[in-house]
Every structure is written in C-alpha cells, then in structure tokens.
C-alpha cells in the first residue's frame, strides 16, 4: 500500500538536517583515521597462510619432488605439467615441472596433496608480468619461503 508519510518538520526544512550532515563530514575529516595504504611504501599485513607464488622445496640443492603426479591430478585448474625421469641417486624426479600461473587459482590443493612437502605456496602476491608466463623448474626452485 502506498502511504504518503510526511517527514518531520525539521527534516522538511532541510536546514537542521544539512547542518547535522555538515557536522558528520567535519567529524570524519578531523577525527577519523584515513584508511588509505600508500602501496609501494606501505603494505597491507597479510596472514602467513596467504597462498601466493609457488616454489618447490629443495634439501641440499635437490628438490623434494619425486614426480608422483599427485599435484597435477588434484589440481582443479590443470595448470601443473610434470614429466618424470630417472636418475641414479634418486629413482624418480621431475625432468620438467611447469606451472601455468595464469590458469592457477591459488587454491593450495597441490600443497595439501604433496606427500614430500615439495610444492609449496609462498606469501608473495606481486606477480604482475607483461607477458603470459609458465613457471619452469629453475624458476620454481628458487627458495622463496614465507616472507
């Protein structure tokens, strides 16, 4: 039902209401904290659990990965491509380990699935590039850790 409700006289006169509004903006201007984060100098504090850029953990210069193919299996975005190979000191290892970062949805399932604690997600979130990148093994072997 359409009811024509009359506003109270004070708000129909505008003046009082506008003065109240002016007080609110002035209070905001003088006493409120500014929420702006001036990005390159100041950074937001993210949780340590942030899922950012991937890396493959290495112990004594040898990657933990045994090319078990669990991470490409579990990956919902199908962005991990592994080619397994053999070598004498370690029966199975990835010859090729590529992550198509544009397909990745940073769900962190690969990290959960990994039995060898090899693929990990760091907290690095600045990943802008000028061209499409597929991270290869050399790139992923840089130990980024948690920043």
């Amino acid at each position: 039902m359409l009811v024509d409700r009359k506003a109270p006289v004070t708000s129909r006169l505008y003046v009082v209401e506008i003065l109240k509004g002016l007080l609110i903006t002035m209070k905001n201007m003088l006493f409120s904290r500014n929420v702006t984060i001036q990005y390159p100098e100041e950074r937001r504090n993210y949780s340590d659990r942030l899922r950012g850029l991937h890396y493959i953990k290495a112990v004594n210069g040898v990657e933990n990965c045994t090319a078990c193919m669990l991470c490409p299996t579990v990956c919902p975005a199908e962005c991990i491509h592994i080619e397994a190979g053999e070598r004498p000191d370690k029966e199975k290892f990835p010859i090729k380990f590529e992550i198509d970062i544009l397909r990745c949805c940073f769900c962190g399932m690969c990290e959960e699935a990994c039995p060898k604690d090899a693929i990990k997600l760091s907290t690095i979130y600045e990943m802008s590039q000028s061209k499409r990148v597929v991270y290869d093994k050399e790139m992923l072997l840089v130990q980024r850790g948690n920043r």
Binding site: N28, S32, T36
Partner: peptide, 10 residues
C-alpha cells in the same frame, strides 16, 4: 584533498 579527508582517504 578536502573531499578525500572527509571520506577518510588521502
């Protein structure tokens, strides 16, 4: 600047 400060920006 004034509008920014009123809206808690810089």
């Amino acid at each position: 600047r004034g509008s920014a400060l009123m809206q808690n920006r810089l």
